[in-house]
Computed example of a mutant assay.
Amino acid sequence: MAAGNRSSNQLVVPQANGALDQLKYEVAQELGIAIPQDGYFGNMVTRETGSIGGQITKRLVQMAEQQLAGK
């Protein structure tokens, strides 16, 4: 887990951790949200973290749909 991450969620595929982190930073940048350098999200507004999480979920669903469609 990343420093400061207190989530009890565990990845089914631990090797995907790096790709998910990269996706988090890409989405945040696209939304114009600065991610704290120390990795601690506790001082961020809930709306910002929710926006990041929502966009990540949307992208992951799109990726899964494309994979299921054989693209």
Rank of each mutant, 00 (worst) to 15 (best):
M1R: 11
N5R: 06
R6K: 15
R6H: 14
S7I: 05
S8A: 12
S8G: 08
N9A: 14
N9C: 11
Q10I: 09
Q10T: 13
L11T: 04
P14L: 02
Q15I: 09
A16P: 01
A16F: 07
N17I: 10
G18I: 07
L20E: 00
L20V: 01
D21V: 10
D21T: 11
D21F: 04
Q22P: 00
L23A: 08
L23K: 02
L23D: 00
K24Q: 10
V27D: 01
Q29N: 13
Q29P: 02
Q29Y: 05
L31W: 06
L31Q: 09
G32F: 07
A34H: 07
A34N: 11
I35L: 09
P36D: 04
Q37T: 12
Q37K: 15
Q37N: 09
Y40P: 00
F41K: 03
F41Q: 05
F41S: 02
F41T: 09
G42I: 08
N43C: 04
V45S: 10
T46K: 14
T46C: 05
T46G: 05
E48W: 10
E48K: 08
E48S: 06
E48N: 14
T49N: 00
T49F: 02
T49I: 13
G50H: 13
G50P: 01
S51H: 05
S51F: 04
S51M: 13
I52K: 02
T57Y: 10
L60D: 03
Q62T: 14
M63Q: 15
M63Y: 14
A64L: 14
Q66P: 02
Q66C: 07
L68W: 13
G70V: 08
K71C: 06
